[in-house]
Amino acid sequence: MTAVPLRSVRLGPVSFRLRPRVLAVCLALSAVVVAALVVCLTVGDYSITLENVLAALAGRGKRLDRFFVREVRLPRALTAVLVGAALGTAGAVFQSLSRNPLGSPDIIGFTSGASTGAVLTILVFGGGMLSTALGAMLGGVGTAALVYLLALRQGVQGYRLVLVGIGVSALLGSVTQYLITRAELTDALSAQVWLIGTLNSREWSHVASVGVGSAVLIPVLLLLGGRLRLMEMGEDTARALGVSAQRTQALALVAASTLTGVAIAVSGPIAFVALAAPQLARRLTRADGTTLTASALMGAALLLCSDLAALRLLAPVQLPVGVVTTVVGGTYLVWLLYAEWRSGRA
């Protein structure tokens, strides 16, 4: 990693470190998100000009425009932004806590628990969207708690937490697979779509639930960001610098898990965003430690652009967004790794 020039800014009693490259990347990612939002609102089988979009947003204009912009496209796009930001942030926190580039909410079993819960709801109780979300939430929280309790032995040792997570996730993965192989083909397909993750026909109620969750939890995690960066230097160093490691760890773990849960309940376990967004952000900012803001923005941009592609690529067929995130995110990561070794930075 290249050294980032240090610059500190003092505003009255508050002083903080300004990292120009991080700031630039964050601004650029925000611009990407806004641009993609605009495209999402205008483009479609029924295309609407930008003026009409603005008019519809303000509550004026044609009834059909208003319907498409305010009831169909905006909730879907906002869900994508919020879910993406939530997954990106949670992924960065998990990678920082486990100090592992492969770390993601999966390692504490949350995703696999949520998947089993949701698939069980779909296949056994023929669940609708709401009951599926509930099943996912219950499964995820229950599993995460179980993993934490099983790993608890004179405090939680990070390594043991990871291994217990592997074991429990594998067990639940087995159960999910069993359910899928034994179900009727149509039921199995709808469970499979949920497992891939989709944003089709998401409404304001979804925006509200993931919005409230993100509004509460993302700031909490951003506040913890500095301490997490200190803990990456080693727990002893962090403790010497006045960070209470155990408490920070527990708080970050709970907040990040809940955030993942809120996101997954709305969209299904969209693969790869939580894993790739922090890595992509880290490579773009060339920062030494975790950059939560950039990871959140990267997650939002990744999911929104992927959803746009999912909608338009094979229109009128709508792909589940999870198909596109893996292809787009994966290709992007491949390209970044390739660019890294070509420029000799690796």
């Binding site: 492969l102 499979q192 891939i196 693969a271 894993l275 790739a276 589940p320 292809v327 994966g330 990561l333």
Partner: peptide, 24 residues
């Protein structure tokens, strides 16, 4: 780290492609 990331990235692309085919 680079090997692990490269493996994850390539696997992800392939996963997306197979998922897409499987759904249709």
């Amino acid at each position: 780290v680079r090997l692990a990331l490269a493996g994850t990235a390539v696997s992800a692309v392939l996963l997306g492609v197979t998922n897409g085919v499987v759904l249709f």
